[in-house]
């Protein structure tokens, strides 16, 4: 596992306002038959980005500005559906480091944190502002756990559990942490068989 430690991200937002964007839309099932993680960024949101004949649509995701965005703002209940980790792999491979919505599905949330993608659930007023102002340049500060919107100096906090924050900021690896508990696991197994 390798991702850069995470502190502050300043970027324009790319906005996908639809609600309930599910993992089938993020990465359709036909791209799941890969046996590696590479190159999935090309296929994220492929139904928005490619015509039936394979040519590119004029969707913002295909533009240079879009590709430079590090922050994705999405409609309510983003990432619902399957447990495919191909969704966060694709989003990070595309270039996103943050996804903001007013509701984010559980499994997607967990999968994102494990792949250096910060999921942020933000209060409805801020969410609405973000939806209404696509392309806004905003600041996400993980240390302070807040998002600053430009113009009127609004700052909104967000929640993240202490452990995930620590892992993201330090680039700590959960597998190494778990492996460090080998003695406790072995002791548990003795009593549990």
């Amino acid at each position: 596992m390798s991702f850069e430690p995470f502190t502050t991200i300043i970027s324009q937002t790319l906005v996908l306002p639809a609600t309930n964007i599910d993992t089938d839309q993020i990465i359709p099932a036909k791209f799941l038959s890969v046996t590696t993680k590479d190159g999935l960024g090309e296929h994220v949101f492929s139904n928005l980005r490619y015509n039936a004949d394979g040519s590119e649509t004029d969707h913002e995701l295909n533009s240079e500005t879009g590709k430079a965005c590090r922050i994705l703002v999405a409609g309510h209940n983003f990432g619902c559906g399957s447990s495919r980790e191909h969704a966060p792999w694709g989003l990070t491979d595309y270039g996103f480091r943050v996804v903001i919505s007013s509701e984010i599905a559980d499994i997607f949330w967990n999968n994102s944190l494990k792949n250096g993608l910060l999921p942020i659930i933000i209060e409805p007023a801020a969410h609405q502002w973000l939806l209404d102002n696509p392309g806004a340049k905003i600041t996400v500060d993980l240390t302070k756990q807040d998002v600053s919107l430009p113009g009127n100096h609004m700052t909104y906090g967000f929640n993240i559990d202490a452990f995930s924050k620590h892992c993201l900021m330090e680039g700590v690896d959960e597998l190494a942490y778990l492996a460090g508990q080998a003695d406790a696991i072995a002791a548990y197994e003795v009593g549990h068989e």
């Binding site: 980790e85 494990k114 597998l175 508990q181």
Partner: peptide, 15 residues
């Protein structure tokens, strides 16, 4: 359900 990273965790540590 779990994601692939967690599949790795369970394979390696059963936890």
């Amino acid at each position: 359900g779990i994601g692939t990273t967690q599949v790795g965790h369970v394979l390696a540590t059963q936890c």
